[in-house]
Structure formats: C-alpha cells, structure tokens
C-alpha cells in the first residue's frame, strides 16, 4: 500500500514523461566550443539526454542539407553554435554559414517547417551565461511549437 506522498510522486514522474522534450541536433564549432560536455551543459538536462552533438571544424562546413536531413531523420530542431562574426578561425566561415542558414530558414518557412526549429548562435567562449540563456530560450521556442513529426 502506497502512501499518499508516494502516489503523488509516481504521478508526477508519469506526467513528466508525457511532456514533450525536443530532440535537438547540435552542430558546434571546434574552435570556440571544442568540448562536447561543455556544449551539453548549455542545454536543459532532459533535452541534453536526447540531443546529438556534431563537432564541425568550422560552421562554414555546415551545409543546409545537414539540417534538412536531421529534420527528416526525426529531430525536432537543429542548433548551430559557432564563433562570433569576425572571430572565425578561417576568417569568414561563419559568415558563409550564416548566408546559407538564412536561405535555409526561408526555404523551411516556405515548405511549412517553423523556421524557429533552426537555431543559430554565435557564441562568445568567455560568456557562457549568455550562450546558456540564448540556447534555453531557443529550446523554449521548440517546446512552444511542439514535435516536428
């Protein structure tokens, strides 16, 4: 026989498993964010558990097709984290990525995918607080629009 408190607890955990937790594909630059564990720490714990992390040599390697493929493969969102504009190790890799992702964002919107599923942040490695805040508000956005499939 369970006590009232125990029953409550079981219910709470049941409810929690029903709550939608987005699956996110995270692409991060190896120059500003080389440590995967560090990137993981920016995400809420539940989301980090289901997320996949792909380390790129530069966000300039980020093809729009990567994001499209991730969405097709069952991810709810794609997050790209790279160096701040002007700080790219290869000078303009992140700018190239930005143009491509802006184009993709537009194509996604035309094809009926919420462009909010695509998150891009140029992170300052010395300001993890800001990165964490922005990543979390991106996740909040995903929670608001719900699962992709």
């Amino acid at each position: 026989m369970k006590t009232e408190d125990e029953t409550k607890e079981t219910r709470a955990s049941e409810i929690e498993t029903d709550v939608f937790q987005p699956r996110v594909a995270v692409f991060h630059c190896r120059w500003c964010l080389p440590d995967e564990e560090n990137v993981r720490s920016f995400l809420p714990a539940e989301v980090a558990k289901r997320a996949s992390f792909m380390k790129l040599n530069c966000t300039g390697r980020m093809e729009a097709e990567f994001a499209v493929k991730a969405l097709g493969a069952g991810y709810d969102g794609v997050l790209v984290l790279g160096c701040q504009i002007g700080e790219c190790h290869y000078r303009t890799g992140n700018e190239q990525a930005w143009k491509r992702l802006a184009l993709l964002s537009n194509i996604l919107a035309l094809a009926g995918v919420y462009p909010e599923r695509l998150g891009v942040h140029w992170a300052d490695p010395f300001d993890e607080g800001t990165t964490k805040r922005i990543v979390n508000s991106y996740i909040d956005g995903l929670l608001a629009i719900g699962p992709f499939k």
Binding site: L79, W98, K99, L101, A102, S105, N106, A109, P115, E116, L118, G119, V120, H121, I134, V135, N136, S137, Y138, I139, D140, G141
Partner: peptide, 9 residues
Amino acid sequence: VLQGLRRGG
C-alpha cells in the same frame, strides 16, 4: 542579409 533568419531565441 540576415532578413528571414531567426537566431536562436
């Protein structure tokens, strides 16, 4: 150029 891109939150 950035028009149309939603930056992560």
